[in-house]
Design a binder for these strands. Structure first.
Length: 419
RNA sequence: GGGGGAGUGUCCCGAGCGGCAAAGGGGGCGGACUGUAAAUCCGCUGGCUAUGCCUUCGUAGGUUCGAGUCCUACCUCCCCCA
């Protein structure tokens, strides 16, 4: 997509070099602005969840690189659009969120951004905006008159996202159709308020971004630009940021640093280089070296990936600790006191707790039934001893340093600690 | 408005003569093999105080010893005609 264009700006050369660039509306034009040091850009984020997960990490890194290369990042919260509900969930299962929840979610998300961006009042400082500020008070008639007339339905119908739906005879509600209008309006509004001329996003946002650029032109803003990142999947095609246990949250209260570290450590061989470029800030030549490691040596690269990626979210100390915990656990098969833990009352241990209940309590099994099945399959271990009797009890004699180590499979370990 | 079809295991797709906790996939989890990878092979994939009990096939009723299966009404979606 980038052709042979050689960007002059630090921003675009970083993006192209690291594999962030999928499409851009005008590379040369954008490059010029980026080089001038006046680039203000935004990315929109949903605030339907209390935090962000690894699926948004590419977007977050885009903003981070923007700031590091002299630009001003804007994180736009979809507080206004969240009030309408998510249109893409076609079964009405997605509820409208109460305003307080949206507010709380915004706070959580902001704390994630704070780890990646420096916020403030300065020229290059990141800011957070909420489109509820302008969308919530929007008057329908005014909107139609001032903005609505600039949207070409013909054009919108020709966009892939819409066209596909029509061709497949899938329902496309008016509400959903309007999302791109609102998003386009956001872009224009941010341009007016903050001189923001670039919207970035995942490649699935391309149509919406272009609609915004178009609206800007019709409404007489400066020339706007759009840029998308590739939609990330793992080598085997799975969506980034989701595992069976749930999303890979970027918040230590929702996902312990150790598990975050593990997520990256367990990436597929073929993803290692790509991920190093996208999710760490190691120099490219260093990455090239790591990427070239063959066979089992690639594991060294994965550990570096895991530690670097974790350091960015949870701090270097926590990252090193996670690395050390993993080393003890997996390489030495030694007890590691910093594994994720769950507390249990002393009295319960005194009396003896059934293995089934213990694994459920530790969150390693969803139900006693599942725990039972795992035992049958040889998947559960207590202090590294495979459990064979589902009626076994865990008592004081199983404690080492006030904790029992419960394991599910090779990789998932939880310490049950006496409170 | 008229005619026809469909909604199944709370991840998805999808079979299902009145005996059904319900075939088969995919996905996921566990085991073996490895390198905490991939591929491959094997097992598991409603809940519980468990030789039994409870809840599941769009919703609510009905027939029946017994209903995912038959009947009625309703809801939702799709197709054809107007």
């Amino acid at each position: 997509m980038t052709g042979d264009f050689r960007p002059q700006s630090d921003f675009l050369s970083t993006l192209t070099g690291r594999g962030f660039l999928h499409q851009c509306s005008d590379l040369a034009g954008l490059d010029k602005i980026a080089k001038s040091g006046e680039l203000v850009a935004y990315i929109g984020f949903d605030c339907t969840a209390p935090s962000l997960h690894a699926g948004s990490l590419v977007q977050i890194m885009l903003l981070r690189w923007l700031q590091k290369t002299g630009g001003k990042p804007i994180a736009l919260m979809g507080g206004g659009t969240s009030r309408v509900g998510d249109p893409s969930g076609k079964d009405a299962s997605r509820q409208l969120l109460p305003l307080e929840t949206i507010a709380a979610n915004k706070e959580g998300i902001k704390s994630v951004f704070a780890k990646f961006l420096s916020f403030g009042e300065g020229k290059q400082d990141a800011i957070m905006q909420d489109n509820a500020d302008w969308l919530a008070s929007l008057n329908y008639i005014d909107f139609l008159r001032d903005t609505g007339r600039h949207f070409s339905v013909n054009r919108m119908l020709s966009m892939d996202s819409v066209k596909l739906r029509l061709e497949r005879d899938q329902e496309l509600s008016f509400l959903e159709f309007n999302y791109m209008c609102l998003q386009a309006y956001d872009f224009v509004e941010l341009c007016k308020r903050h001189n923001c001329v670039l919207q970035m996003g995942g490649s699935d946002q391309w149509g919406n971004i272009v609609t915004g650029i178009d609206l800007g032109r019709r409404m007489g803003t400066r020339q706007l630009y759009g840029l998308t990142s590739p939609l990330l999947t793992t080598g085997s095609g799975a969506k980034m940021g989701k595992t069976a246990q749930g999303a890979v949250w970027l918040d230590n209260s929702m996902l312990p640093p150790f598990e975050y570290w593990q997520y990256w450590r367990n990436c597929e061989d073929g993803d290692t280089g790509r991920f190093l470029k996208l999710f760490t800030e190691l120099p490219l030549d260093e990455i090239a070296r790591l990427e070239a490691l063959g066979g089992a040596e690639i594991n060294e690269a994965k550990k570096i990936l895991a530690t670097e990626a974790t350091a960015m979210v949870h701090g270097r100390e926590a990252a090193l600790q996670a690395a050390e915990t993993a080393r003890k656990t997996f390489e030495e098969n030694a007890p590691a006191e910093n594994l994720p833990s769950v507390e249990i009352e002393a009295a319960a241990i005194e009396a003896g707790i059934g293995v089934l209940a213990a694994f459920v309590k530790a969150g390693l099994a969803a139900s006693t039934g599942e725990a039972r099945r795992q035992i049958k399959g040889g998947g559960l271990r207590v202090n590294d001893q495979t459990v064979t009797d589902e009626r076994a009890l865990i008592g004081p004699h199983d404690l080492t340093g006030g904790a029992v180590k419960l394991s599910l499979g090779r990789k998932r370990h939880v310490l049950l600690k006496v409170a």
